[in-house]
């Protein structure tokens, strides 16, 4: 630090001050960050591998992934600042000034995203493995990164949603850390068909599916709503693993319609079903 004391004073338009961080310090810091990155990749891979073999505890194991990433990167940054760089008061002021300028001019969004990532990990509006809807995107959370959250949609698209956006958005979480989630299955039948029989069939189709999960807290509910030219029967039922959501819906719908046909339960005439109001409009 003696070198700094004898250095010529710098002012506006003067030479850039020597802040005492030599190339070897920068290389050490970069090396440490690289090691942290590799460790994170290995830990994420191992936890992911383990979670897929943990069956019913899959989501619990996956919950550890963002915490592990935060801890490893946090330790690396702490170690760089405390042991490698060893900032003096002058260096800290210069570093803070540079960091402030960088954040203010160019890295504002990146920092907001990282802060958002930390908030998501700590506040847990969702976890890795959950099925969520963020903005217009719906899918399974596969990664909560420092910058963005990644979802795999039902069409197998990988969507990255900025963490900054997540904390400013309404997030709908379908399973909130559980392996099971509720699936709503609507079937529409002609008004002249036997709605009670249709409800019985839909219930049996749901409870006999290989994808179903039933417990006191996860009951099967069958509802019916009458419309002028058709009736809607609805099953609210839980799938045993969020990954089978669409297979479950298909299985129940297919077998229920086969039974409907056997029992003479007809679909509504073309054009009479109004789907414009969506599920909310149908109630239940």
């Amino acid at each position: 630090m003696a070198e700094n004391a004898t250095a010529p004073p710098s002012g506006p338009g003067g030479p850039i001050p020597d802040i005492g961080i030599d190339p070897s310090t920068i290389i050490s810091a970069l090396l440490l960050l690289t090691i942290a990155y590799v460790v994170v990749r290995v830990v994420v891979f191992l936890l992911g591998w383990l979670s897929e073999r943990a069956y019913e505890h899959r989501i619990t194991v996956k919950m550890a992934i963002p915490f592990a990433k935060l801890a490893i990167y946090g330790f690396a940054v702490y170690h760089i600042l405390s042991s490698v760089v060893q900032l003096s008061a002058t260096q800290l002021i210069v570093f803070s000034g540079l960091a402030g300028a960088a954040i203010g001019f160019g890295l504002k969004d990146l920092v907001a995203e990282v802060v958002g990532g930390v908030v998501i990990v700590l506040d847990k509006p969702y976890q890795v493995g959950d099925k969520v809807r963020i903005d217009d995107q719906y899918g399974e959370v596969t990664d909560i990164g420092l910058r963005a959250t990644r979802l795999v949609t039902p069409d197998d698209n990988l969507v990255s949603v900025s963490n900054q956006m997540v904390i400013n958005q309404t997030v709908a979480n379908a399973n909130a850390g559980s392996l099971e989630m509720q699936v709503v299955i609507d079937l529409f039948i002609d008004s002249s068909s036997d709605a009670a029989e249709a409800m019985k069939i839909l219930r049996e189709a749901a409870v006999t599916s290989k994808y179903v999960y039933i417990s006191n807290k996860r009951p099967v509910t069958i509802l019916m709503r009458d419309h002028p030219f058709y009736s809607m029967v609805r099953a609210r039922v839980y799938v045993n693993d969020i990954r089978y959501e669409f297979k479950f819906e298909t299985d129940v719908t297919k077998r229920a319609w086969e039974a409907f046909k056997r029992e003479g339960i007809e679909p509504p005439m073309a054009g009479v079903v109004d789907l414009g109001g969506g599920r909310a409009a149908d109630g239940g």
Binding site: K210, Y213, I214, S215, N240, D241
Partner: peptide, 8 residues
């Protein structure tokens, strides 16, 4: 079967 949640 418990692991794959086919029996509860």
């Amino acid at each position: 079967l418990r692991r794959v949640r086919l029996v509860w």
